[in-house]
Simulated assay, not measured.
Amino acid sequence: MKVLIAVDSFKGSLTSIECSEAIKEGIQAVSKNAEILSVPLADGGEGTVEALVHSTRGIFVEKEVTGPLGAKVHATYGILGTGHTAVIEVAAACGLPLVPEGERNPSITTTYGVGELILDAINRGCRDFVIGLGGSATNDAGVGMLQALGFSFQNKQQKEIGCGGGELTKIRTINTSRAHPALRECTFKVACDVNNPLHGLNGAAYIFGPQKGATSEMIKSLDQGLMHFAELVSSVLIKNIQQIEGAGAAGGLGAAFAGFLNGQLLSGIDLILNTLGMEAKIESVNIVITGEGKLDGQTSLGKAPLGVARLAAKRGIPVIALAGGVTKQASTLNELGITSYFSIVNEPMSLGEAMDPKVAYDNLKMTTAQLFRLIFAMKK
Rank of each mutant, 00 (worst) to 15 (best):
S55K: 08
A42R: 01
E46C: 06
I59W: 13
A42T: 04
C94Q: 00
P68V: 02
K32C: 12
A93P: 08
K72Y: 06
V30R: 05
E21K: 11
E62M: 08
G44Y: 03
V90P: 00
G67V: 01
T82D: 15
P68E: 04
E25L: 09
P97Y: 11
A71Q: 09
Y77V: 03
A34Q: 07
R57W: 15
V87P: 00
V73Q: 09
S55C: 11
L80A: 12
G67I: 00
K32T: 15
P40T: 11
E21Q: 09
G58Y: 08
K24D: 00
A75K: 04
E21G: 02
F60W: 04
E25N: 12
T85C: 11
T66I: 10
H74S: 14
E50Y: 09
E35V: 14
V73L: 08
P40I: 06
C94E: 03
I59L: 10
L52Q: 10
G83Q: 10
I36S: 07
S31G: 13
I88K: 03
V65A: 12
V39F: 02
T48E: 12
S55T: 15
A34P: 06
T76H: 10
G45C: 03
N33A: 15
G26D: 01
D43T: 07
A29Y: 03
Y77R: 02
L80G: 07
E21M: 07
G78Q: 12
I59R: 11
I59D: 12
L52I: 14
E89V: 07
G78L: 08
A34H: 12
E46P: 03
E46L: 06
I27A: 01
P68C: 01
A22S: 04
F60D: 08
E64M: 15
E50T: 13
I88V: 11
T66W: 04
Y77P: 00
A91G: 12
A93L: 07
A86Q: 06
V87A: 07
A92Y: 05
A75H: 02
I23W: 02
E46H: 05
V73F: 05
G44D: 04
G45Y: 00
V61C: 09
E35C: 09
A71D: 10
T48D: 12
G26T: 02
V49P: 03
G81K: 09
I79R: 01
I88R: 01
L37V: 08
V87R: 00
L96W: 10
L80C: 10
V49T: 14
I79N: 01
S31V: 06
I59G: 03
H74Q: 09
K63G: 06
V90H: 00
S38H: 00
P68N: 04
G67E: 00
G95C: 11
H74R: 14
A91N: 06
G45D: 02
K72W: 04
L96K: 11
H74P: 07
I27R: 00
A34M: 14
A29L: 06
V61T: 08
E89K: 08
K63S: 13
L37Y: 04
L69S: 07
Q28S: 13
E21N: 14
G58M: 13
T56H: 13
A71L: 07
E62K: 10
A22P: 01
V49C: 11
A29I: 04
I36D: 04
T48Q: 10
D43W: 01
V90E: 04
A93T: 05
E35Q: 11
V39T: 05
A29F: 02
K32F: 14
D43R: 02
F60Y: 15
E35F: 09
H74C: 13
S31R: 08
V39P: 01
